[in-house]
Write a protein that binds this DNA or RNA. Sequence first.
RNA 1: GGAGACGUGGCCGAGUGGUUUAAGGCGCACGCCUGGAAAGCGUGUUGAGCGCAAGUUCUCGCAGGUUCGAAUCCUGUCGUCUCCGCCA
Length: 422
Amino acid sequence: MLDIKLIRENPEVLDNALKARGAEPKAQELLALDEKRRQVMTDLQELQQRRNEISSLVGSLKAKGEDASHLFEEMKTIGPKMKDLQEVERQAQEDFTGLLEGLPNIQDADTPEGQDEENNVVVHTYGEPTSFDFEPKAHYDLGEELNQMSTELGAKIAGSRFTWLQGDIARLERALGQYMLNKQTEQNGYTEVNPPLMCNADSMYAVGQLPKFEEDLFKTAEGYYLLPTAEAPLTNYARNEIFSEKDLPIQLTALTPCFRSEAGSAGRDTRGYLRQHQFMKVEMVWFVKPEDSMEIHEKMRRHAEEILEDLKLPYRTVRLCAGDLSANARRCYDLEVWLPAQNKYREISSCSNFGDFQARRMKARYRDEERNTQFIHTLNGSGLAVGRTLIAVMENYQQADGSIKVPEVLIPYMGKDIIKAS
RNA sequence: GGAGACGUGGCCGAGUGGUUUAAGGCGCACGCCUGGAAAGCGUGUUGAGCGCAAGUUCUCGCAGGUUCGAAUCCUGUCGUCUCCGCCA
């Protein structure tokens, strides 16, 4: 959620930001609703003030044992007036916050222009696309031939976009998750969290999953939502909190399954393990003081990149252009890993700085040196998507005979250096 | 699942219809005192909205309702705890 005060002062900043994202200007409409809301609030408060005055007068008269009934006359007229005005106020607030909460964040000034991913800017490249002296196979073919990955079984047991892993490939995915989580906790300072895997609606609203993306979420009969990313539970740690300055920064990480209905992705990436209803991911979340968020963002991006470098997987990092930026983000890097079978780079991590946008919506604050409360800045990033990392390892480490070499850093976790057909 | 109890500020805790503008205490901050500290004394201390300001309004888990007036009464809801049952 944006700060209305900033928009009052600089409405053109909002409209320029919306334009860059490919959206219509909204400042004028928003300010009109703001004006109306404030007028109604003032009117209502005058009535409330009068009611409080009379009420306290009644109290003092009664305390002295005197008659106060002559004051009820006016009070009786205030009641209905207040009720009407409260309804007007509620509507005005709803109109105003409805529009304000629907607006995306204002992206950083140096955000690349552009409408879609074509205009993202490559800022960093590691390694070269893996070369083979044979025709590399897709991970799903490798997995089937190893008899350790079955979409058929996934479909039989659950449905499409579910996969059955077994044997060394199942273990490889677990090894990847362990490796990442250990690295983030032992070397990069994150606190390991084992959060609820379902969230209530309040939490989902706080991180912006609701109301916009309801159709992408799995919902239980009891009204819980399966988490689409551990960002949801981890970020909600800060909801309605006021941290002391000395508490910050706070950095959390979790290895969790993520559940997405992929309602809008019918027909995309239908083969293989790339786009599943359920996948494992290590998530990193930071709560920081405003002045630190830019620096932390770069740091967190490195925490993601280093995993790929440890695994010696070729990748590139892109800075998202305005049109490709998610609504909450003011600045975002995507990490894209090389997938030989697709002959292209595919997203494997997204590292975002939300500024105070998310914090304002969920009332996450800290008390600064002058004892004022200020909104914190929130950041999150994947470190990394484990399922997609499994694909990348399988495809980049495949051998001519269909076996898969185990990346060096994972050998201790696997107890072997090569995965062969079982 | 059954029965019951309870939700008040950073924490404890008083408050059962009207100067509650939420007592009192603890903690915390600042000041006085001190060679320094402790103790003691004094002041401050929920959060948010509107306003240039003075100020004003809201906030007693949340949402409704009753009433001239609600922390207080009623209904619903969420949460916590206790006992019983079931259970990994």
